[in-house]
Computed example of a mutant assay.
Amino acid sequence: MSERQNVFTIKTNQLSDEVYNKLATYAKSRKLGDYISSLILRDLDDSSTERKAIEDTKTYEMFEHIKNELADLKALAKTTGFVGNDSFKEEEPSKVPN
């Protein structure tokens, strides 16, 4: 990565002495940029993980909804005589022919 000009100035009255001293230590060792970058990358990774977990939950809920709707349709088909009772034998997903 190429050298960049200093374009950020952080001004806040809410830094504790402990936090300020830690940042000052990194700044004096010329590693503040790397430290901040690592924190931001960690945050980005965490938010990506959270987003995936939310998507996984939504996908699971959608499959559950579809499963329930299919069960309702099967029950309706059986009660209306639309198909024979043996038409809806449960099969393992791996045993269903393609």
Rank of each mutant, 00 (worst) to 15 (best):
L41N: 05
N6K: 14
Y35H: 08
P93Q: 12
L44G: 15
N98E: 03
H65G: 02
K28I: 13
D46C: 04
I54M: 07
T80S: 06
S2T: 03
E90C: 13
N21R: 13
S87D: 09
S2D: 03
P93G: 02
P97R: 11
K74W: 01
K74T: 11
D17Y: 04
N13Q: 12
V19A: 07
G84H: 09
K58Q: 09
V19Y: 05
K11H: 05
Q5H: 10
L70R: 15
T9H: 11
E55I: 08
V7M: 08
F82D: 02
T49A: 04
D45E: 14
N6F: 04
T59A: 08
K28Y: 02
Y35A: 09
L32V: 02
L70M: 10
E69V: 15
T79E: 06
L70Y: 14
E3G: 07
Y35F: 15
M62C: 12
T12R: 03
I66N: 03
T57R: 14
T80F: 01
K31N: 04
M62N: 13
N6P: 00
S94N: 11
M62R: 12
T12H: 01
L39Y: 08
K52I: 06
L73M: 11
D46M: 06
D17E: 12
E91K: 14
L73E: 10
G84N: 10
S38P: 01
Y20Q: 12
E90W: 12
A27S: 12
L15K: 07
S29F: 08
L41V: 09
